[in-house]
Amino acid sequence: MPDQPTSPTNGTDATSPADSQWPLWEVFLQPPKGEAHEHAGSVHAVSAEQALQNARDVYARRGEAVSIWVVPSASITASTPDDMGPFFDPGNDKPYRHPQFYKVPRGVRVF
């Protein structure tokens, strides 16, 4: 069967983009038992539909997922390591947000 096109062009006509491995997308899978979506890894794809298909073929080959999200990697805004202290430390000294902070009489089941 033909390995050559009938009228070969070199793929670099004015409208063609340069060769690449395509943009990167982040993949999030929801496991079958209703947990939240979790980051699984990344795939390369040219469009959202292709990213979904690739994510399905790459990350859900063993029935790992019932739902897939794909997001262009460039669209993700992440906290930076420099944020680490001011962002998260204030959450570490609010013991009243945790149930263990509150005492109940011995032998009583609260819930």
Partner: peptide, 10 residues
Amino acid sequence: TEESHARAQA
């Protein structure tokens, strides 16, 4: 592209 069109048509 022009090339992919030609190959697909072939």
